[in-house]
Write a protein that binds this DNA or RNA. Structure first.
Length: 425
RNA sequence: GCUGAGGUAGUCUAGCGGUAGGGCGCAGGCCUGGAAAGCCUGUGGUGCGAAAGUGCCUCGGGGGUUCAAUUCCCCCCCUCAGCGCCA
């Protein structure tokens, strides 16, 4: 959410950003918002005066009673005030609901380096790395291979849970856990604090960290409780410090979340229908940072570098794309995706999403940092998040990239210590 | 799930119809050669104001009674302790 004070003081910055996003229909929101905000402040001034009068009279009545004076006139005036205050409050309540509704729907302000573009086809590649191998045999679909080898069972999972679920079996279970520990060790060694968060959080916390549309499309709600299954550990990690103020020396705070992730919307497209790429449930090691506003762009690059290191170490070719205005969504100010090379499809596929959300989550969460040199000054922190490893997608990348003509899968060298030094799955 | 005790500013705690007090922590100031100690001020949200200031709101949340609610009444939420159930 944007800070209303920023919109009040620099509405042209917001307007320019909406134009860049090509969301011109929201331009009128800004005018309406500014009008409502001005009216809200007028009402507050009136309200403050009424309340002040009420407080003064209450004190005067008390003083008069104590000295035995007549209070009839004061009581009469006092009796007229509550109704006026109530009317005023009701109007203010309506206005603040309107303001809040706009604020919840206005997107974050983009970084200047975000490219303009209509959708994901216009994201901009900024780097590609790794050696793409040539295969002189036909690669097997990763899902098909996994079933043949007894490493996964999709049919029985569909029978008992529905499409988009899977039983992971045998070597792939060990591989999944090896990837988790590999990822976690990499982050711990860099000073990130590993965290297992709650897998369910309540609606009010969830609204602070994600886009409203996600409630309808992405999140699983637990019936009968105010609880939603997390779509990523980013969400509980971000909400963890809700309504808190960091001291300057607490930041930057680097966290490594690990959790199962639950998502309703998975789509259904060609090769992805069956397999581990688009699923309702997967495990993810996530990087998350709370920091001072001035250091977030540098830390955004740090997160990306960490994620790249994973694919370098696993020897999986990848590229980095800068997500364009049409694909970036409401929360991030800038987002990189890492896409891993999937040789069977002859294409790069998304495996990492790395975002700087600047103060957008922090404003809703009310998370601030006390300024080092000015005790009174408290600024909203910046939050950043990035996948380190989403195991299901990396498993697919390994099954495809490391496959030989016999259908054997060679385990990436640096992962072997986590696989009891085995060379093949 | 049952019973009991609680929820007061960053934290601990007092107040139980009449401007929310104190301890600790933290920040600043005075003092000092420098520090400690001591003393003073500040500490959440928001409005007006260039500033100095000044007002309003905030005692878990929401209603009600009252000129006035942290205090009385109703509903809800959460925490802790004990018991029960349980991997």
């Amino acid at each position: 959410m944007l800070d209303i004070r920023l919109i009040r003081s620099s509405p042209d910055i917001i307007r320019a950003d909406l134009l860049k996003r090509n969301e011109t229909e929201k331009l009128v929101w800004i005018d309406d918002l500014l009008r409502e905000d001005a009216r809200s402040r007028e009402l507050k001034i009136e309200d403050d005066i009424l309340r002040q009068r009420r407080n003064v009279i209450a004190r005067e009545i008390n003083a008069a009673r104590k000295s035995g004076l007549d209070t009839t006139a004061l009581m009469a005036e006092a009796a007229s005030l509550p109704l006026k205050i109530k009317d005023n409050d009701e109007e203010q309540e309506k206005i603040s609901e309107t303001i809040h509704a706009y604020l919840m729907r206005l997107p974050n302000i983009l970084h200047e380096s975000v490219p303009a573009g209509k959708d994901d086809t216009e994201n901009v590649e900024i780097k590609s790395a790794g050696t793409i191998k040539k295969y002189d045999f036909e690669l097997k679909n990763h899902g098909q291979l996994a079933v043949e080898k007894g490493w996964a069972d999709f049919e029985r999972a569909t029978k008992i849970s529905g499409a988009g679920f899977y039983f992971l079996k045998g070597s792939l279970v060990l591989l999944d856990m090896a990837l988790q520990r590999f990822a976690l060790d990499l982050l711990v060694q860099k000073g990130y604090i590993p965290i297992i968060p709650p897998y369910m959080i309540n609606r009010s916390s969830y609204e602070c960290v994600t886009d409203l549309g996600d409630f309808e499309k992405v999140m699983y709600k637990i019936e009968g409780d105010d609880a939603y299954l997390i779509a990523t550990s980013e969400h509980p990690l971000a909400a963890m410090y809700r309504d808190e103020i960091f001291e300057d020396h607490d930041l930057p705070l680097r966290l490594a979340g690990i959790s199962s992730c639950f998502r309703r919307e998975i789509g259904a497209h060609g090769l992805d229908t069956k397999g581990l790429f688009r699923v309702h449930q997967f495990t993810k090691v996530e990087q998350f940072i709370f920091c001072r506003p001035e250091e977030s762009w540098q830390l955004h690059e740090e997160l990306l570098t960490n994620a790249e290191e994973v694919f370098q170490k696993l020897e999986i070719p990848y590229r980095i794309v800068n997500i364009c205005t049409g694909d970036i969504g409401t929360v991030a100010a800038k987002k990189y995706d890492i896409e891993a090379w999937m040789p069977r499809e002859n294409a790069y596929k998304e495996v990492v999403s790395c975002s700087n959300c600047t103060s957008y989550q922090a404003v809703r969460l009310n998370v601030k940092v006390r300024d080092k040199s000015n005790f009174e000054l408290k600024r909203h922190v910046h939050t950043l998040n990035s996948t380190l490893i989403a195991t299901s997608r990396v498993i697919r990348a390994i099954l495809e990239n490391c496959q030989d003509e016999t259908g054997s899968v060679e385990i990436p060298r640096l992962l072997r210590p986590y696989m009891n030094d085995r060379e093949y799955l």
